[in-house]
Design a protein around this nucleic acid. Structure first.
Lengths: 174, 174
DNA sequence: TAGCCTCAACCAAGTGGTTGGTGGAGCTAG
DNA sequence: CTAGCTCCACCAACCACTTGGTTGAGGCTA
């Protein structure tokens, strides 16, 4: 998937990759649609990572960004598939709902953290919670296409929001 | 293209849309590759808009963001194709070079403006030129998938960088 | 026997691409 | 004017191949 994308997704190839006949594949997934639905389901589920509990909005946001950055760098293929899914969602209702569900959770988490920070006066910038949520989501979605720039993007985003100087070479502190 | 994407791009369909036989299409574009190359060429060329000349980095950046926002809102199909191209570029060298060329120009423009602003001390935030360039590019690329959030994303980005309160309902001032 | 899981063979519907040929616009020589 | 010629855009028919999906016939374990 991550290599060929949906455009190059062939049932025979998938079957061969897992070492079975392509007709056998139909035994597990009745139609190609079902396979794709399962892919969408599986992929979005991969993002269910429970970050460390933090009551501080700033470090919560920082931790979230760091976690995303790590994921982009360590599992670029996962994000590659996500891009395919985002595109596919435009024409495939099943994928669309899976992605919408996934994104709704993400969105509410981000907005929650940002609102929390605003009420506590953590940000020293004009931060609109919803707008910033969209900004972060857009930035992450965009960086999926260029994982090598992940460090820069996340670093700068963090600097702007949480007010820390961007440096890529910080240590292991979580 | 914007509707079906590359995955659904069929020469016969394209030919029918323009009212010719599919074999005639081969008369103009020898192979499907050639057609796709032409699409990439044409699409990237659409972004050659010469913005208003400004010596002020802040308003230059603001104008750039505004122009992009307008484009996203007015020609979402154009950006839809761009997403397809970005994805295609992963496996198609021809598309990759076209996109790389286009992106290089964009990148150098952004970095130029940001560096300019830094030397003049325009930004009152820790703005790393290259990193911020990547951030802006990532945000724009991400927002293509959700044009309805364009106003929020660009507004917030502008607020963070140029330091203006995010409001979507400003007037026609250019 | 029953219930899965597996496969080879097959099918209809496309797929990109090729071939041979048609008809009209434009040019030139008689 | 017109006969002869070359382009050019066009098409119907065709080809080799791939696609997702089906069928029926085993095999394996319980």
């Amino acid at each position: 998937m991550a290599e060929a994308g949906f455009e190059g997704l062939r049932l025979r190839q998938v079957a061969e990759d897992v070492g079975i006949d392509h007709s056998t594949l139909h035994h597990h997934f009745a139609t190609k649609q079902d396979l794709i639905g399962a892919i969408a389901e599986y992929t979005t589920r991969q993002f269910w990572t429970t970050g460390p509990e933090t009551s501080d909005p700033a470090s919560a946001l920082r931790g979230h960004l760091l976690a995303l950055r790590r994921m982009v760098e360590d599992q670029p293929h996962l994000f590659a598939v996500t891009v395919e899914l985002d595109l596919r969602a435009r024409r495939d209702p099943a994928v669309a709902t899976a992605m919408a569900r996934h994104e709704a959770g993400w969105r509410s988490f981000l907005t929650g953290v940002l609102v929390d920070g605003t009420t506590r006066g953590v940000w020293d910038l004009p931060v609109d919670a919803e707008a910033t949520t969209e900004l972060v989501i857009a930035a992450v979605k965009g960086v999926r296409l260029a994982p090598e720039a992940a460090a820069q993007v996340f670093g700068q985003l963090e600097a702007l929001l949480v007010g820390r100087a961007p440096d890529d070479t910080e240590g292991e502190r979580l």
